[in-house]
Amino acid sequence: MLMTTDVRKTSESLPGQKATREIYLPPQRSSITGGGTAHIAAKEFSVYYGEFEAVKKVSADILSKYVTAIIGPSGCGKSTFLRAINRMNDLIPSCHTTGALLFDGEDVYGKFTDEVLLRKKVGMVFQKPNPFPKSIFDNIAYGPRLHGVNDKKKLMEIVERSLRKAAIWDEVCDRLDKNALGLSGGQQQRLCVARTLAVEPEVLLLDEPTSALDPKATAKIEDLIQELRGSYTIMIVTHNMQQASRVSDSTMFFYEGILVEHASTAHLFTNPKDPMTEDYITGRFS
């Protein structure tokens, strides 16, 4: 409703979605539909780069407050799909979409959608840590300031809360005024998570957040995802099967732009329906 100026009801709205939005549901790993509500829903959704169809007619429900992992070989359209959700693909002039992608029941690509407001609700953390060349404090305060918080005390509160949530407060609390580029890669990535959390999004999109990090920093990010699960809808792209099975409730397997299989993580990794999925997760895939 906030997202658009258009107040028409979409017929695609999922039943029961309004009633349970605010309530935290304990993750049910056995089934992807049992009890949860679709926060994001794709219907025959395709993304094109010019003529090339990078994501092909994907239909899927992403459940609210669950962790969804996206796996698949390189170039299969994982990032493209993820970036389509908060419309980061708008930056690429040749990129366009068909089908429908719904966020909270409203069309992300609708005529009246305010992509700025959408991105406020759908935060993103990128593969390479990308802090601004500003102080740690200013990095975190950037989003809140954008959205009208200017009171110094209030900002300080938000900064501390976000940094604590991202499990980096203890490491940086005595140098908030130092440039963020002086942090290590792992710290920078957690800072980026904190920066995203400071905006208080509903959805967290993580595109290979640990691929540039060492195992220790990776473990910290994974712990962080465990912490945040239940409070945010999280989508994480990863090449690491163990990581997907460790942190996610459900998993999507993409191959050449097609969503081959989408099931609860436990199910997909132990009992894949599609032979292609099985090949991929057992490493018989090239």
């Binding site: 980061m88 930056l91 991105r119």
Partner: peptide, 17 residues
């Protein structure tokens, strides 16, 4: 770097901002 622009936009910043 393009990443600065992405980071800012993904936080809900307008283009002008």
């Amino acid at each position: 770097p393009k990443t600065y622009r992405e980071a800012s936009l993904s936080l809900g910043s307008t283009k002008w901002n």
